[in-house]
Design a protein around this nucleic acid. Structure first.
Lengths: 224, 224
DNA sequence: GTTTGCAATAATATATGATATTTTGCTGAT
DNA sequence: ATCAGCAAAATATCATATATTATTGCAAAC
């Protein structure tokens, strides 16, 4: 099998983005080219390309002539992100359910199964695999909307999802059983082609997550 | 007044983006670094930064190890873009109308006035200012949704609008009087805080534009 | 004690050239 | 026509140089 043969640029891009999302690079912190060069073992030119990409996606802020900063967080921003996620994901879900084929159903069931397995572990107190858990969460939501017939919509949703994820990682708390229940209900509704139920559960799911994260941010006011 | 003091990077970025949107750089064409260096009088490093930005916005395609290409066009892509514009702009319009203040109304009336002036010229056969016309069109739509209270939504909409605009510029035809009428009706509905009417006129406006552009693309099959 | 002004320092923006790798184009053989 | 293999072209990456701009530190002034 051919190894992914990643270029320095793309693999470092992944690493930096990941570090922003998972908080290794703190919100608002300055991204000095020289510091990054050491940290990621890449040249300044390559890093500038990466930071420009991340800036246009909104994970980084590029301040003309003053360099780059990790995008700051705020409750207002989180609310905007959550609302956008609802708008994009619900819309995609609707068309996806209406046009999903057997392959789609198969992937969906598989994605839910994997997610469910790790959710059980989380419930049992094993918090050691937060990152993997979130990846499966992402894969499940992605599988749900993957038949929406719009690459553009999927791309936009992917970015928004990652931004939302950053806030969840920031407060580092777990909503637990209710979220698991949401996923199950979404799966069932999707397979039953019950658009209305699926969409309303999804919206509820995101709003509850938003509430939860906002509350956690209120308690930990320092991270802004 | 302080001059904009643009950096080479940002001003060249604007130029390249503009050239993609207005078709000076043809869809699908290869963007050779060396060629661009001559054309825009910027260094390769700077140009790579710019192309990376444009790639992450979707105006350019970055093919690992094979360089950059102007994003190709297709009817499917146009349909996706139009649907996304409807989704984003209608949602933004709804909240904007509900929370617009007097300043918002003022800007809106002003934007419509400017747009209307140039639309009349277009109707009279003066097609010399397509670019200015499209700028005013953008400013009007932007003014409508500017009170939506979401920077994230406005940013996303801006990008989608530009992509939609590229298709319009590509086929280079003018929908004329009906579009002018749409704008007037949207303005009136917005000022009357009639959300339903405004939103449905907007959706109709975009769908008609889509139809029109699709038809023009069908006739000029060569540009793909 | 706070503010102002300015020099010293640091960091960014941009350009250029060098190297390794990859892709592309071409030639000739099958 | 197809394919292998080589030469030319282009990209990806890096290091380095320079000009410009931003930041910092400190002394002088209020």
């Amino acid at each position: 099998m051919p190894s992914p043969t990643n270029t320095v640029g793309s693999s470092t891009y992944e690493r930096v983005k990941r570090d922003v999302i998972f908080g290794a690079l703190a919100p608002g912190s300055k991204l000095k080219l020289d510091g990054l060069r050491e940290r990621y073992n890449a040249s300044v030119s390559t890093l500038r390309e990466i930071l420009n990409r991340l800036a246009s996606e909104g994970f980084v802020v590029a301040a003309e002539q003053r360099g780059f900063f990790v995008k700051p967080v705020s409750k207002d921003d989180l609310v905007e992100i959550a609302n956008l996620r609802i708008l994009l994901e619900c819309s995609a879900l609707e068309t996806s359910i209406m046009s999903g084929d057997p392959d789609w159903e198969g992937n969906l069931v598989a994605a839910h199964h994997k997610l469910h397995l790790i959710e059980q572990k989380m419930l049992d107190g094993d918090q050691s695999q937060k990152e993997l858990w979130k990846r499966y969460d992402w894969e499940f939501h992605q599988a749900m909307i993957s038949a929406c017939n719009s690459q553009n919509l999927l791309a936009l949703h992917g970015t928004i999802f990652d931004k939302y994820l950053r806030y969840q990682m920031l407060v580092l708390t777990y909503r637990g059983a209710p979220a698991i229940e949401d996923h199950r209900r979404m799966l069932d509704a999707a397979l039953a082609r019950d658009v209305d139920t699926a969409v309303s559960v999804l919206e509820h799911h995101i709003r509850k997550g938003l509430e939860h994260t906002l509350k956690a941010m209120g308690d930990t006011e320092d991270l802004i």
